[in-house]
Design a protein around this nucleic acid. Sequence first.
DNA 1: GCAAAAGTGTTGTGTCTACACCCATGT
DNA 2: ACATGGGTGTAGACACAACACTTTTGC
Lengths: 226, 226
Amino acid sequence: MSPHPVHSTVAVVLQVREARLQVLVWQRAKEPQSGRWTLPGGTLAAGESLEQSIRRHLAAKVDVQELSHLEQLETRVDAAVAPSWQVSTAYLGLVPTHLDPAIPADTRWHPVDALPPLAFDDGVTIERGRDRLQAKLSYTNLGFALAPPEFTVSELRTVYVAALGHAVSATNLQRVLLRRGVLEPTGERREPGPAGGRPAALFRFRTRALAITDQFAVLRPQRAGE
Amino acid sequence: MSPHPVHSTVAVVLQVREARLQVLVWQRAKEPQSGRWTLPGGTLAAGESLEQSIRRHLAAKVDVQELSHLEQLETRVDAAVAPSWQVSTAYLGLVPTHLDPAIPADTRWHPVDALPPLAFDDGVTIERGRDRLQAKLSYTNLGFALAPPEFTVSELRTVYVAALGHAVSATNLQRVLLRRGVLEPTGERREPGPAGGRPAALFRFRTRALAITDQFAVLRPQRAGE
DNA sequence: GCAAAAGTGTTGTGTCTACACCCATGT
DNA sequence: ACATGGGTGTAGACACAACACTTTTGC
C-alpha cells in the first residue's frame, strides 16, 4: 500500500428529463465491479483544485458549459477497493432541462428512484445529492439550475414535482417564488396550444447564482440590534 | 512532487467560553508559517476513515470524549504549501460549556470574532464552521452540543447569544424550543442566588443526537399525498 | 356556448416576535 | 415592602396551503 492515498473526484449530475429526476451514470467495463454502474469522475491531478478536477473529468461525459450549478457534497475514504487506498470527494452538479448534452456510449441517464445495480457506495452518494437538492429548492433560488431560461409557471411546476417527488401547487409555487423575489415576469406570453386555454405569462429567475431566499432565522430580533 | 497528495484532516473546534464563541488553535513552531496559529489536525493514515483520523489527531489536544458533535465541513486542495501537495478535509467539532478540556501548552482558545494571525486559509475555514453552527442552531436541535446536560433557560440563552452573535429573547427561546419538542423540563429547579429572584426550572435537551426540527419544507402539501 | 388552461381573491392555520403582566424568592 | 430574576398571556405580523372563482384563449 502506497504511503499516500489516491484522491479522486466524482459527481452526482442531476437533470429533470421526461418529468423525472435522473442521474448520469457510467457502466464499468473493467474490474473491480465490472458491469455495475458508477458515478463519473477520476483521479485528482497535481496542481488542480477539486472543482477543476471534477470539471475536467466531467468534460469527457458532458459539456461542462452545461452545468448550471456545482457544489461539493462529501469526502470519504472508500473502503472496499482492494489494492489501492482511495479517498474520494463527491460533487453535486445540475443541468437545466432545456439542454440535452451529448453523452458517450457507456453512460446513461437513470431515474434516481429506479437505479440499476451500483458499484461502491454510489447509491448513498446519489441519495445525498438528491436530498441536498430537495432541501435547497425549499430555501434558496436553486430552481434556476434546473429550469430553462424562460418558462411558464406550469412548466416550472413539473420541474419541481420531479425534483421534490411530491405534488406542488402551481398557485402556491408562483406566489412563493414571486413573494421572495426569486422569479420575475419577462413580459412575454406563451400562446396556447390547439386545445385552447388562456396564454401563460413567461417568467425567469431574477438571478442565476445561488442565494438563500428563506432565512430560517428563528430567534433573531427583527428591529436591527446586533 | 509526489504522484499522490498528502491528505490531512483539520478541525474547527468551537466552545462557548466566558460567554463568547471560541475556537481551539495551535501555534506553529516550525516553518512554514512559523509563529502563526493553525487549526489542529494531521495526516490521514492508511486504513482509517476521515472521521477516525480527525478524532485521533484531536485526541492529542482535547479529550475526544468531550466532543459532543463532529461533522464534515469541506475538502480542498491547499495551494500555498510549497514542496508537498496537500489536500485537507475540515471538520466542525463542538464542546459543551460544562467541560474544560486540558489542552497542551502550544494550543489556546481564541474568540472567533477576535482571531490572531492565522496560517493558510484557516480563517476562512473557521468562518465556515461558525456559519454552519449558526445555521443549524436555527433549524435543528444542535444546541445540545453546546449546552451542559441540564440548564435554566437563561443559561441556555447566554450560550445562544454567544454562538449566534445577536440578542436572543429568553421568552422566545423557551417557547420555540418547547414547541418543537427540543427541550423538556427535568422537574428540578435551581435555587436563586443571594440576590433573590424566582427559582428557575431546569431543562434538558430531549435527545442529544442531531435532528432537524424545523422543516423549511415549503410547497409541500400538508395532507399526506406523495 | 363550452372546454381548457392560467391566474387571482380569500380564508383559515400556524409560527413567530414583542411586550405587558404575573409569580416566587431574598433581604 | 421592594428588588431581583423567572415565567405566562396575548396581540399583531407574516407566510403558507387550500380552494373557489375569474380570466383568456381555441373550437
